[in-house]
Amino acid sequence: MNSNWKQLFEILQKPTRLIIGLMSGTSLDGLDIALCSVKGAGPATNIKVLEFTTVPYTEEFKIEVKSVFSKRAADLQMICLMNEKIGLQHAELVLEALKSWGRTADEIDVIASHGQTIFHAPETLHGLIDYPNATLQIGDGDHIAVKTGIITIADFRQKHLAAGGEGAPLAVYGDYLLFSKAGEDRIMLNIGGIANFTYLPGDNDAKKVFSTDVGPGNTMMDQYIQQQYSGLYFDENAAIASQGVVNEALLTVLLENEFLAADFPKTTGPELFNLHYLSAAQAKSGTSNLKQADVLATLCACSARIIVNAIQQCFGTSAKPYIYMSGGGMHNPLLVSMLKAGLPEAKFGTTADLGIDPDAKEAVLFALLANETLVGEKTDFGDREGVPSIRMGKICLPD
C-alpha cells in the first residue's frame, strides 16, 4: 500500500486526532494557528484547543499580499508567486509554533489550511450572466504538506461552490456541530472584515440552521485607518471613533445598497465594501470634509446598524436570542455598545462562554472541517440555498 494512504488509514482509525487549524482573514494581520484534539465526528464531535497563537505578519509580507488582494486588475505573475510564497510562509510559521509548544511534526495528524482569500466573486457581485459563483484562496496546500511533512487538507471553499453555494460563509458547518444547544436559540456572530452570523435553533434541527454574510464588519474602518493614519492598521479599542460623532447624512447613504436589502443567504467582501464605497457615499451626502473621528464613528455605526437590521429581519424586533460573538470586532467597545443598544432584548456573550477562545474560533472551524473530511458523515442541512450538505477540502500529501 502507498505509504501516504497507509498513514491516512491509520489516522482514520484513531480515537483522537491532533489537527492544526490555520486561518488568515481579510484583515491580513497574521496567521491564527490552533492545535486541536478532536474526538468523534458530526454532532458527536468533541474538540479541545490545546494550543493557540496568532503570528503577526511582517510589514513587507502584508504589502506583498495587499498587492494582489481584492483587486480586479492584479499582476498575474505576482498571484502565482504569492500562491507559493504564502504556502511556504504558513508552513514555516507552523513549524515555529510547534517548536515553541515543545512538539514535533510527527505528533500532528493533519493540518487544515484555509489559505488567504484574495478575491470573492459571487454572482450577486460580479453580475455576469454566463459565469458562476467564484472565490479564490491562495497559499498552496502541497507546499505546506511538503515543507512540514504533515498531511494537509486545504482549499475548502471550492466544494461549497461546486455544490451550489457561494463559497461562504462556512461557519454554519462548525457552528452547528460545536455550539448547538437544545432549548436555546443561538446566534453565532462573527465580526471580521465582513460580519456574518449563524442561527442555531433550540430544537437542534439542522434543516433550520441559517448562515449568511450581512455586510461590512471591520473592513471599511480598517481600510480608512490605514489610509489616514500612518503605521496604524486598526482603531484599537475604538480610541479614535469614540471621539467622533455619527453623521446621519453619511450613515443614511452608506446603508443604501442593493446587497444590504437582498434576501438571505448572501455573501460579500471588500470587493464591494471599501474606500471607494465610502468616498462615493461621502460625495453623495456632501460629507467629504468630515473630521476623521466622525468618519470612523459613522463607519462603526454603519456596521452596527447592518448587523442589528439583519438579526431583526430574520427574527423580529422582539426576539431574545443568545448572541455569541467572535472575530476582531468583538474587541471594539463602541461597536459592541451600539449592538447592545440596538438589540436590548438579546443576551450577549462570546464563544469563550462556550469553551472556545473567540480569537481561535475560525482556525478551530477549519480543524473541525478537516476532521469531517476524514471521518464525518454528511449532515443533512436540507435543500436550502447556500447550505449544501457536503464535506469539503482537498487532501495534499507530503510526498
Rank of each mutant, 00 (worst) to 15 (best):
I108N: 09
P201M: 09
K394V: 15
T212A: 12
N46A: 14
M1N: 04
I111G: 09
D29Y: 05
P388S: 13
V387Q: 08
A249I: 08
A360V: 06
K62G: 09
F156M: 07
T26W: 07
A249S: 15
I63N: 09
M78D: 10
N190D: 13
L76R: 01
D359C: 02
L368T: 04
A162R: 02
T124Y: 00
S242H: 04
E385G: 00
G164H: 13
C80T: 11
A249N: 14
S100Q: 13
D383K: 13
V49C: 13
S37I: 09
A261G: 03
G192P: 00
M338T: 03
V49W: 01
D29E: 09
K99T: 13
K71H: 11
Q312V: 01
K48N: 15
S337Y: 03
S3I: 15
F315P: 00
V209Q: 07
S67N: 11
S100H: 11
Y229C: 13
G217W: 13
N371R: 05
D383E: 14
A97W: 04
T268N: 05
S279Y: 06
F273T: 02
G139C: 08
D140W: 05
T124D: 07
G215I: 11
F315V: 03
F264I: 14
L178G: 07
P398C: 07
A280H: 06
A304I: 03
D222Q: 11
A363T: 03
P388G: 09
G141S: 08
Q7G: 00
N274Y: 05
A370M: 10
E64H: 04
G165S: 08
T104W: 05
D75L: 06
L22S: 05
G42W: 01
E372G: 07
T26M: 07
G328H: 06
T26Q: 05
I33K: 01
A121P: 00
Q13T: 12
R72T: 15
L290T: 08
V209T: 14
A304E: 11
A249E: 12
